[in-house]
C-alpha cells in the first residue's frame, strides 16, 4: 500500500509539472491558433540558463531563476515577433512547421553551449531534502513544484477570467475578427500568450532538472514532448483540459513505471508510450479531447 501511495504522490507531483507545460502550450494555441512545436526549446532554454548560471557562474539561485525564466520569455517573444507574426497571413500548418524549425535551431545551439559536459547540475536551495508523511517520501522539490503549480495555475485562471488582458485573450480566442473590431490588438495578445508560454515552460523546466533528476542533460527536452499528448487529451483549446491532461499523463506514466513487472505482457518500458496510448483512447471517444470544443466547419 505504501508503494502505491508513494507512486501516487510522485505521479501527481510530476503531473503538476506536466500541467504547467501543457498549459503554456494551450495558451498559445488558444490565443493564436498556432501549434507551438518550439515549446521544448523554451523549456530547454530556461532550464539550461538557470543551470548554467548557478553552477558555472555561481550566481545566487534566486537571481539566476528570474534570469532563466526571463531568457525563455525573451526567446518566446522573439519567436513570436520575428517569425510567427510576419507569417500571420500564412496557413497555420506552415507556421506550425516553422516552429519545428525554430525548435531544432534553438535546441542545437543549447546542446552546443553545453560543450564537453554531459550533465549540468542546478544549485537550488532545496537540494535532495525530503519530507516524510506516514510511509511516503516526498521530495521537497516536488512539493515546491506542486505548490508553485497550484499558485501559478490559480493566478493564471483568475487573471484569465477577470483581468482586462485575460478577457482580451479569451475574446481573441473566441472570435478574432470581432475582437479586432472592438479594438483589441491581436499582436499584443499573441505576444502576451507567447511570453506566458515561455515563462510556464521555464518554470516547468526548472522542476525537471532539480531532484530527483541530477541536472540538465541532453535528454531533458524529451520530457517536454510529453506536453503534446497531455494538451491534446485535455483538449487543445481548453486551459482546464491542459491541467487535467498533465495530471493524467504524470500519474499514468509513474504508475506504469512502478508496476512495470505487472505490465510486462505489454512489452518492456511500456511506460514510454503510455501518454500516447491514453491520448489515442481519449481521442477515440472524444475526438477533440476531454474538454475541447468540436470544430465547426464552414462550407
Amino acid at each position: 500500500m505504501t508503494e502505491f501511495l508513494q507512486l501516487l504522490v510522485a505521479g501527481v507531483s510530476l503531473g503538476a509539472v506536466y500541467a504547467l507545460l501543457a498549459l503554456g502550450f494551450v495558451v498559445v494555441f488558444k490565443a493564436t491558433g498556432v501549434v507551438n512545436f518550439a515549446h521544448p526549446a523554451l523549456l530547454v532554454t530556461g532550464a539550461y540558463a538557470t543551470a548554467r548560471l548557478t553552477s558555472t557562474y555561481q550566481w545566487n539561485f534566486w537571481l539566476a531563476l528570474p534570469v532563466g525564466i526571463g531568457g525563455a520569455i525573451l526567446l518566446a517573444l522573439g519567436i513570436q515577433r520575428f517569425l510567427v507574426y510576419p507569417m500571420a497571413a500564412q496557413a497555420v500548418t506552415a507556421i506550425t512547421i516553422m516552429t519545428l524549425g525554430a525548435d531544432l535551431v534553438v535546441r542545437t545551439e543549447v546542446t552546443r553551449e553545453m560543450g564537453a559536459v554531459d550533465l549540468l547540475a542546478v544549485i537550488d536551495p532545496w537540494g535532495n531534502h525530503v519530507i516524510r508523511l506516514g510511509g511516503v517520501v516526498l521530495p521537497v522539490t516536488r512539493l515546491v513544484a506542486l505548490v508553485a503549480g497550484i499558485v501559478l495555475i490559480t493566478a493564471f485562471f483568475v487573471w484569465f477570467k477577470l483581468s482586462t488582458w485575460g478577457i482580451a485573450m479569451r475574446a481573441v480566442a473566441e472570435d478574432p475578427e470581432t475582437a479586432a473590431l472592438m479594438g483589441i490588438r491581436r499582436s499584443r495578445v499573441a505576444a502576451l500568450a507567447w511570453m506566458l508560454a515561455g515563462g510556464l515552460a521555464a518554470v516547468a523546466g526548472l522542476f525537471l532538472i532539480v531532484f530527483p533528476t541530477p541536472g540538465f542533460s541532453s535528454t531533458t527536452y524529451v520530457a517536454a514532448i510529453v506536453a503534446f499528448p497531455a494538451a491534446i487529451l485535455g483538449g487543445l483549446d481548453s486551459t482546464g483540459g491542459a491541467i487535467v491532461g498533465g495530471l493524467v499523463v504524470g500519474l499514468s506514466v509513474t504508475l506504469a513505471q512502478g508496476y512495470a513487472h505487472q505490465l510486462n505482457f505489454l512489452g518492456d518500458n511500456f511506460y514510454e508510450v503510455m501518454p500516447y496510448v491514453v491520448m489515442v483512447l481519449v481521442l477515440l471517444v472524444r475526438p477533440a479531447g476531454l474538454f475541447g470544443t468540436r470544430e465547426l466547419h464552414r462550407v
Partner: peptide, 15 residues
Amino acid sequence: RGIYLGIASLGLVFV
C-alpha cells in the same frame, strides 16, 4: 482533424 491528427500520428511513431 488538423493538429489532433498530427499528434495522434506522432503517437503512431512511438507506439
